[in-house]
Amino acid sequence: MVKVFERPKSLTGKPFHYCPGCTHGIIHRLVAETIDELGIRETTIGVGPVGCSVFIFEYMNLDFQQASHGRAPAVATGVKRVHPGKTVFTYQGDGDLAAIGTAEIVHAAARGERITVIFVNNAIYGMTGGQLAPTTLVGMETTTSPVGRNQETQGSPVRVSEMLSTLDGAGYIARVSVHDPKHIIQAKKAIRKAFANQMSGVGFSLVEVLSTCPTNWGLHPIEATKWLADNLIPYYPLGEFKVPPAPAKAEREVE
């Protein structure tokens, strides 16, 4: 018998603290599988956010830095400039990246910083108790938009991938989802491309991953995956918004 599916070495094995059915755990695994398959666990440095995944450093079996809220792209820039030969990535939620960290992510992309960003978009603040996020859909109820996000007073959600793909410095930008196995497989391909692009020197790469938040959406985990498909995907279309001209060299070598 041969194992076809097991815990990737780049995960420490410590059980995740996430709520039952929260798909952060799937995304952690996809990143870890990618790092294993590219053989870069010992030459990768991760930068974690503030938010539900603030403890990602406990789950990842590689060098890590814990950044202040929204500043992971700046921290990652500092790391990458000191170790240009190493692989550097950030893992951030939508509050971290699209609210307080907007300037950092925009300028990291504009600079074409050779880092990879895993951007988890669950359209809400999880850790702090279900508040309105920049990505919360109009009409969506949260603890700070109790009667539904009001476009008049609270504006409309930010489509980060499209926004960043207008920047010349952005090398690879894709939006994926993890709400079912088919999409999980596609998500992993994009994550792998993002890392492979960095390894071949292509500038800034980001994968926006639509993710569920059963607790703060107030839905059963299975309903949450359906809600994501029916509500998030229409507003946040999946796909590749920026692709580097030549296919990533490392990608070809690896396959």
Partner: peptide
Amino acid sequence: RMCPDVAIEVEKE
């Protein structure tokens, strides 16, 4: 693949 907690392993011949 769908498990968020890496609780499932699969083996094949």
